[in-house]
Amino acid sequence: PQECLLLEPGLNEIMANSLDYNERLWAWESWRSEVGKQLRPLYEEYVVLKNEMARANHYEDYGDYWRGDYEVNGVDGYDYSRGQLIEDVEHTFEEIKPLYEHLHAYVRAKLMNAYPSYISPIGCLPAHLLGDMWGRFWTNLYSLTVPFGQKPNIDVTDAMVDQAWDAQRIFKEAEKFFVSVGLPNMTQGFWENSMLTDPGNVQKAVCHPTAWDLGKGDFRILMCTKVTMDDFLTAHHEMGHIQYDMAYAAQPFLLRNGANEGFHEAVGEIMSLSAATPKHLKSIGLLSPDFQEDNETEINFLLKQALTIVGTLPFTYMLEKWRWMVFKGEIPKDQWMKKWWEMKREIVGVVEPVPHDETYCDPASLFHVSNDYSFIRYYTRTLYQFQFQEALCQAAKHEGPLHKCDISNSTEAGQKLFNMLRLGKSEPWTLALENVVGAKNMNVRPLLNYFEPLFTWLKDQNKNSFVGWSTDWSPYADQSIKVRISLKSALGDKAYEWNDNEMYLFRSSVAY
């Protein structure tokens, strides 16, 4: 590609939709070469300064400071330590791993069909083939991996386009969902002041979706909304933040926050679980009234959910574990990228498509890292959202599997949720969690119950496949010279610098 592309739109479109291996590689590498390399010296300084700040406030390091958001002291029976968070994340991840490994094996087999000769049947997945710029969410792999393609499509993007949905309609439908469970409408100022579409040439905007509580009843969302099912669900997520903000607005200023950061992320995700169900999509006209649910549509639905929800958990866990180790000084600065990709291979089963030396800073190419967000919130929120969903479905008197529950129109479920939201940070999160779900610790069981039918199906699908991955295989081993030459021509001086062995191999191949 010759034109100058922004991340959004532009590069993200390539990473969402392109099936051209080399075009995807160009976009993936260009973003890291342009952005990651510029941020490397800044990120090194950032780590030093943030650690100084944390230690001045009596924390061991900046990662310890972040984990302090979960700490509860002096509340008998509800205490929770920063170290306990690490333990809980690690042991819940071990419980999730078998499901993830089977999802990984299934996706690898489907990617082998889409990119023959580029995928190893026992290796890691190349990082640039996973549906977005970071491989964070695998949602866009659904069209390549759908188990029963002859069934009606449960990705309702086409239906939204056919019905001329726009950003306003998407957010109005999200608002209807919250109102149906007894939560309030958005304010008039929300509709007047939010930026729900890309302003285009009028001004440059950071398009990463964010929710804003500017105080004095001024709530806004910034999002360059596209007419897709993914953005339909994202709208519910962002509006969930606003509902939380509005619910605790009466609290004293210092207590106007989520019980912990994971709670804030979980609220909209609960609504997304219901909004994505075929039952709900039928009720708002995005699935045909004669759409029939059966075992095959159930597996299609659960796989689509797993690509988004299960596929991202190792990504989140590994990223934050790397940062915690960096802040603690356990990874020397001259080994940041080496350790990043070692951990990516070992924990996530994902491999870099071309080698990256220590001039890169791949983590900082992600919005949340370069903008100083702690990231473990996206792991804890996933466990909380299924715990909350299970409890709210019980309040809504849902009968049947958890993945079929739609809590819309249940004011009982809405009241149970609101009673927790309005507390803000005035009560320990362990107590707030217990008030809703009857337990005071994160628990992976509801998530595993939700995906149980899919897990059973995946194990059957993978019975003749290798489950797990070898960390030795690299996608650039066989194609390295071709890849390096093409990237050198595209990126010039910003391309990865060849070492002596690679230059010798190149000259030998040319001479041959």
Rank of each mutant, 00 (worst) to 15 (best):
R136Q: 09
F367Y: 11
N193P: 03
G189Y: 01
R136S: 07
H237M: 12
F219R: 02
I309R: 06
I309W: 09
H208A: 09
H264K: 05
H368C: 08
L214F: 15
T139F: 08
T187R: 03
T210Q: 05
E265L: 08
W212E: 02
L214G: 04
P209V: 05
H237V: 12
N153K: 12
E261L: 08
E265N: 07
R220N: 00
R377A: 10
Y378P: 10
F375N: 10
F137G: 07
F219E: 00
E265K: 12
H368M: 08
Y378L: 10
M229E: 05
N193D: 04
N257G: 09
F375G: 10
T187P: 15
T210P: 03
E265W: 09
G215T: 14
F301R: 09
D213S: 06
H237S: 12
R381P: 03
D213E: 11
E265V: 11
I309A: 13
F375I: 10
F375L: 08
A249T: 07
D372I: 03
T139W: 08
N193T: 07
L233H: 06
G215Y: 14
P252N: 12
K216P: 01
N140K: 14
A249P: 02
H264D: 08
F253S: 04
K304P: 02
Y378W: 11
D230G: 11
T187I: 08
D245K: 04
Q251V: 06
D372Q: 03
K216G: 00
R136H: 08
F253N: 04
F301K: 09
W212Q: 03
Q188M: 05
K216T: 02
P209L: 03
R220H: 02
R136E: 11
Q188G: 12
P252T: 07
Q251K: 04
F375K: 04
H264Y: 12
R377Q: 13
V206I: 10
M246V: 12
A249S: 06
E269T: 11
F367C: 06
N193W: 15
M229P: 05
R220T: 03
G217S: 02
D213P: 06
V206H: 07
N140A: 11
S374I: 09
L214S: 03
L214N: 03
E261V: 06
H264A: 08
R381V: 07
F301E: 11
M246N: 00
R377T: 10
M229G: 09
D213T: 03
A250P: 12
L233I: 07
N193Y: 15
R220G: 01
T187H: 05
N140P: 09
P209K: 05
S272G: 13
G215W: 03
M229D: 13
N193F: 15
L214Y: 04
F367V: 07
Y373K: 11
G215P: 01
V206P: 01
Y378V: 11
D372V: 03
G215Q: 09
E192C: 07
Q305Y: 04
T234H: 11
E261P: 08
D372Y: 04
D372W: 01
T234K: 08
T234W: 07
S272L: 10
A249D: 08
D218G: 00
H208R: 08
R256C: 09
Y378F: 12
R381M: 12
M246D: 03
E265Y: 06
F219H: 05
H264N: 12
A249V: 05
G217R: 00
Q188S: 07
F219V: 04
Q305M: 05
S272Q: 10
N153L: 10
Q188P: 15
D213A: 06
F375W: 12
R220Y: 00
T187A: 15
A249H: 01
D230R: 10
N193M: 07
S374W: 05
T234P: 00
N140G: 12
T139D: 13
G189K: 01
D218I: 00
Q251P: 00
G189M: 02
F301W: 12
Y373A: 12
H241P: 01
S272V: 10
S272H: 07
H264T: 10
K304E: 09
R256F: 01
H237K: 13
G189R: 01
W212T: 03
E269Y: 09
E192K: 11
P252I: 00
R136M: 13
F219A: 01
N257Q: 09
P252S: 10
E192F: 06
F375M: 12
I309C: 12
S374D: 14
L214H: 13
E265A: 12
G215N: 14
A250S: 12
D213W: 02
G217E: 01
Q305H: 09
N193E: 05
Y373L: 13
N153A: 10
F253V: 03
Q305N: 05
D230C: 13
E269N: 09
D218N: 04
F301G: 09
R136P: 03
D245S: 13
P252Y: 03
A250T: 09
T234V: 10
G189S: 00
R136I: 11
R136D: 02
S374P: 09
F137E: 08
R256K: 15
E269C: 08
K304V: 09
N140M: 11
F253T: 03
V206M: 07
R256P: 01
D218Y: 01
G189P: 01
A250G: 12
N140W: 08
H264C: 06
S272D: 08
D245F: 13
A250N: 13
N193Q: 15
N257V: 10
F137Y: 09
S374N: 13
G217W: 02
E269I: 08
A250I: 14
N193S: 05
Q251R: 05
Q188D: 05
E269V: 08
A249K: 00
H264L: 05
H368N: 08
N153G: 11
N257S: 12
E269Q: 14
R381G: 15
N153D: 12
G189L: 03
F137D: 10
E192P: 06
G215I: 01
F253K: 04
I309F: 12
T210V: 06
D213F: 13
G189Q: 01
E261M: 09
G217Q: 00
H237A: 11
N153Y: 12
R377Y: 06
F367M: 08
H208Y: 08
Q188C: 06
T187Y: 04
Q305T: 09
K304M: 12
